[in-house]
């Protein structure tokens, strides 16, 4: 009996890849990068993005060779590089673009529990860039520098990808908590004169919060899957970020909030493993052997 091939078997590998959540994230990030670079002053940012992607592919390719992996092309590396390039100002020196991308990818390979990285690589690299180089961050890939209506494009892309990776509780909790805390800050007249809740709720700053929520918080390896944990993760990231915004201002607050959430998730994962090991030593050892 002749069986007809299933639709997904007839598609070429590229189409199949684009339809995966990772492929979709990459496609949407490329789209946002191209749209963001439409602003004449940001044309050169495409060079930054290309440089970041090439750097990331080379580094992850070397790591893949070192581990004797068959697949040398790293889609995750491209996503990290695009986020790094989308956030850094287009006037960032090229060596800083390379260094930030390199640190981001190294954090993915070095700071991990099991196979999963602890921290969102792009957030780690970008925070490093602020601390080490004092880099300017324009978040131009969030369409922050384009006309206000372009935020609709960001929202559509973000909602679509959130649905694909099943992270609505995380994103909604993050944004809900963030906006509630900003409202509370405004009512209680908290915050710095240079960084007011009014600023944070408006373009361009709100673009960066949305971009972070949709494309960075939802990163599957560094964010939890269970809905209950997603809610905690979102609340922690928003809470920590807003407290830093209220007390110190600057642009590092969303990154620190996200990295704190990552650390909480990693701690939870580690404690669960520890508990499993203690309660079911045989199951634990079997699981390790299967890895």
């Amino acid at each position: 009996m002749n069986k007809e091939p299933r639709p997904h078997q007839t598609q070429d590998p590229f189409v199949r890849f684009i339809k995966t959540p990772k492929g979709m994230v990459m496609a949407l990030l490329i789209l946002l990068t191209l749209i963001g670079a439409l602003r004449p002053q940001d044309h050169f940012a495409l060079v930054n993005a290309l440089l970041a992607v090439v750097t990331a592919l080379i580094l992850d390719g070397i790591v893949a060779l070192f581990h004797h992996r068959k697949k040398l092309f790293s889609d995750g590396a491209v996503i990290t590089a695009l986020i790094v390039a989308d956030v850094l100002s287009h006037m960032t020196p090229l060596y800083i673009i390379i260094a930030t991308t390199a640190v981001a990818l190294m954090s993915k390979h070095l700071l991990k529990i099991g196979r999963k990285p602890i921290f969102n690589p792009a957030a780690f690299g970008l925070l490093f860039a602020i601390v080490a180089f004092g880099t300017g961050q324009s978040w131009w890939g969030s369409l922050a520098l384009l006309p206000t209506w372009s935020i609709i494009l960001l929202l559509v892309a973000g909602v679509y990808i959130t649905q694909r990776v099943n992270k609505f509780p995380l994103v909604l909790t993050f944004l809900g908590t963030y906006f509630i805390l900003l409202l509370a800050m405004a009512i209680m007249h908290l915050g710095l004169p240079s960084d007011t809740p009014g600023d944070a709720l408006r373009v361009p700053f709100v673009n960066s919060a949305l971009y972070l929520a949709f494309f960075m918080l939802t990163d599957p390896p560094t964010s939890p899957a269970p809905y209950r944990h997603q809610v905690f993760f979102g609340a922690i990231a928003a809470g920590v970020g807003t407290v830093i915004f209220a007390t110190s201002g600057g642009l590092a607050y969303p990154l620190i909030g996200l990295l704190t959430g990552n650390a909480w998730k990693a701690t939870l994962h580690w404690l669960t493993k520890l508990e499993t090991r203690r309660s079911y030593p045989e199951t634990y050892e079997q699981g390790r052997a299967n890895q």
Binding site: G176, I180, L182, A186, T196, G198
Partner: peptide, 18 residues
């Protein structure tokens, strides 16, 4: 809708000062 309502409340509340 709830998140949008919270955002809108904050936006409107901060509008006079901005």
């Amino acid at each position: 809708v709830a998140v949008t309502a919270i955002y809108t409340a904050g936006y409107i509340y901060t509008m006079p000062s901005v």
